[in-house]
C-alpha cells in the first residue's frame, strides 16, 4: 500500500465505518467477545486502545526508517508493550481514580491484533500526522464496536444501560456469558456488512 492520499477526516471515518476493526476487519475478536458485556466495559477498553493505538502509531511512523525490515514485528510488539507499561504506570501513579476503573483493561492490550496490524499496514508507510489520524480513527472505531456490542449484551442480559435499570427485569441472562459474545459479534457483523453492501451498490450504480 503506497502512502495514503486520504484527508484527515477520511482517515478517521475510515476507521469507524469502512474499516471498522471489529465488524469489517474482524480483528481483536477476543476482547470483542470477552469484555463487551456492558457499555461501560466497552467504553473503558475503547479508551485504553485509543491511547495505545495513537501513541504506538506515532512512534512507529517516527522511527520507521531505522527499523530493519526483518525485525519489524518484534519492534512493533516492543513498542506496544512499552506504551502499555508506561500508560499503566502513569495512570497508577497520578490518576488513581481512573486506574481503578481502567487498570485491568490497559494490561490486556499488549496482545491485541488490531494495533500490530495497523502499525504493519499503515504507520510504517505513512507520515506521523497521517498515522496519528489513522490511530484516532481505529481507536474510535474499536470503541464504537465495543460499545455497540456492550449495549446489546447489557440490555438483553441484565436489562440495564450503563448500570441504570431501564427494563426492570433481566430478559436473557445468557447474553452476559462469554458464549453469547460470539452470537452478538456474528449478527452485528452481518448487519454491518449488509448495510455496507447496500450502500456501496447504490454508490456504484450512481457512478455508472
Amino acid at each position: 500500500m503506497p502512502a495514503t492520499t486520504k484527508t484527515n477526516f477520511q482517515l478517521v471515518s475510515n476507521g469507524i465505518l469502512n474499516e471498522n476493526p471489529i465488524f469489517r476487519l474482524a480483528l481483536s475478536m477476543c476482547p470483542a467477545v470477552g469484555i463487551s458485556t456492558t457499555v461501560m466495559n466497552g467504553l473503558m477498553l475503547g479508551i485504553a486502545v485509543l491511547f495505545v493505538q495513537v501513541f504506538s502509531s506515532c512512534t512507529i511512523a517516527l522511527i520507521k526508517d531505522y527499523i530493519h525490515p526483518r525485525i519489524r514485528i518484534p519492534t512493533y510488539t516492543l513498542t506496544i508493550a512499552t506504551w502499555v507499561t508506561v500508560i499503566d504506570l502513569v495512570l497508577a501513579a497520578y490518576m488513581p481514580a481512573a486506574y481503578k476503573e481502567m487498570g485491568i483493561f490497559v494490561k490486556l492490550i499488549v496482545a491485541f491484533a488490531i494495533i500490530t496490524m495497523r502499525l504493519e499496514i499503515f504507520a510504517c508507510k505513512n507520515t506521523v500526522p497521517a498515522s496519528f489520524w489513522d490511530g484516532i480513527g481505529m481507536g474510535l472505531g474499536f470503541m464504537f464496536g465495543m460499545m455497540a456490542l456492550g449495549f446489546v449484551r447489557e440490555l438483553l442480559g441484565m436489562g440495564t444501560i450503563l448500570g441504570y435499570d431501564v427494563l426492570g427485569f433481566r430478559p436473557l441472562l445468557f447474553f452476559v456469558l462469554p458464549a453469547a459474545g460470539f452470537f452478538c459479534v456474528g449478527i452485528m457483523m452481518a448487519m454491518f456488512n449488509y448495510i455496507e453492501v447496500v450502500y456501496n451498490r447504490k454508490k456504484r450504480a450512481k457512478e455508472i
Binding site: T82, T85, V86, L89, V90, A92, A93, Y94
Partner: peptide, 11 residues
C-alpha cells in the same frame, strides 16, 4: 523507557 518511567512513578 520502561525502567525510567517505573522509577519516576513508583513512589
Amino acid at each position: 523507557v520502561m525502567g525510567s518511567v517505573f522509577i519516576i512513578t513508583d513512589k
